[in-house]
């Protein structure tokens, strides 16, 4: 298992030398989940950093906040931000670089390899623990999760508790980094799109029944877009916050603003919201699975994004999040793109 000690020392040095503004990493959580995002400004706080398979959060989301914050600073502190990333998270940085949302110099990347494991799924873990409280989770040499609870240790093969996205992961070590901890070993993935194929194999009405039931649950808390490092639009299609108003703007003009999606959490409106989000992430989603993890109603949102990831791969041979110089999927084309669906 990757060790955090070397990264801690690196982080301490960075802070001592004032080379980074602050460091985004993982610290101890307090709500029953062992890990939580941690922001460190002082070198002496570096010891609060942790790394274990409960470090599920994609911290790259906080770079979006940082960019906004920096925009308001006068004068802006141009030092980079230190950030801990797993393989999937690092691909999110690649996309932000590709889209020129951030520059390489804005981040100092402390990469950690998941090696042959990954992160645990909260629901699977809760089921395994059956009410017991987990104190620590580690990966042993034989690639098993070792759960330490008050009542003793439990050993589980990683596959049993890994998050779905880890089971289909194609980047279990960071693809971009300044320092790296852990080995660049790959875990074999037999079916990178197995979960999507399962749904595709259903007849059309069953597919609809499945998605309708899921999307009907949505309460539009927008946690999915809030947790997503790619959802950085200043104004989302469901909001209306940036309406430019001048002294001459009439009430009719304000009221006549197009509402693409109504505020009611009605099934049709929820569905349009999730379709828009999925298509907007087409060729951009790096499958960190955060949207699905944060959903309080457990809607399998990842399966929507994964579908478009699959199509991008199969139709256009496009894989995002490995090469920052790649043009964006939908602002590029090839002469021989498939068009058998066009009359």
């Amino acid at each position: 298992m990757a060790k955090i000690d070397t990264l801690k020392e690196e982080a301490r040095k960075l802070l001592q030398d004032g080379k980074v503004k602050y460091i985004i990493g993982y610290g101890a959580g307090s709500n029953g989940w062992p890990a939580a995002p941690l922001f460190i400004k002082q070198p002496e706080d570096v010891d609060k950093l942790i790394w274990d398979p409960t470090c599920i959060h994609n911290l790259v989301r906080f770079l979006v906040d940082e960019k906004r914050r920096k925009g308001k600073e006068k004068p802006p502190d141009k030092r980079p931000v230190g950030i801990f990333v797993k393989g999937c998270d690092s691909r999110a940085i690649v996309v932000l670089l590709q889209e020129k949302f951030i520059e390489r110099g804005d981040v100092y990347i402390l990469g950690i390899s998941c090696e042959k494991a990954g992160v645990v799924d909260d629901a699977k873990l809760a089921k395994k623990l059956a009410g017991k409280k987990v104190i620590t989770i580690e990966v042993d040499d034989e690639n098993r999760f070792v759960l330490t609870t008050a009542g003793g240790k439990i050993e589980v093969p990683v596959e049993e508790l890994l998050a779905e996205r880890c089971l289909e992961c194609r980047a279990n070590f960071p693809v971009i980094y300044d320092v790296l901890s852990g080995e660049k070993t790959k875990r074999a993935v037999d079916k990178p799109f197995g979960s999507v194929e399962k749904i595709e194999s259903l007849p059309v009405e069953e597919r609809w029944a499945f998605w309708k039931e899921q999307i009907d649950k949505c309460i539009r808390c927008y946690a999915c877009r809030s947790a997503c490092p790619m959802c950085y639009c200043d104004e989302c299609v469901v909001d209306s916050i940036q309406l430019a108003v001048s002294a001459d703007t009439t009430a009719d003009e304000k009221a006549g603003r197009i509402k693409w999606i109504q505020r009611s959490a009605a099934p049709s409106e929820n569905m349009i919201y999730h379709l828009v989000r999925a298509i907007h992430l087409g060729g951009r989603c790096i499958d960190c699975g955060e949207c699905e993890r944060v959903c309080p109603l457990d809607i399998p949102l990842r399966l929507l994004n994964k579908k478009l990831e699959k199509e991008a791969k199969e139709l256009f041979d496009y894989e995002v999040g490995f090469d920052p110089d790649l043009p964006a999927l939908i602002s590029s084309f090839r002469d021989d793109d498939p068009q058998d669906f066009i009359r």
Binding site: F39, F62, C221, Y222, A223, S226, Q262, R263, V294
Partner: peptide, 27 residues
């Protein structure tokens, strides 16, 4: 400092038994 890790989602308020703020729209 406290809000650094906040994602700005609506989970805490929507699942809260006592939060009651609302919006009114003509649809």
């Amino acid at each position: 400092e406290e809000a650094m890790s906040c994602l700005r989602c609506g989970i805490c308020t929507y699942i809260c038994p006592s939060c009651h703020c609302f919006d009114i729209n003509d649809e």
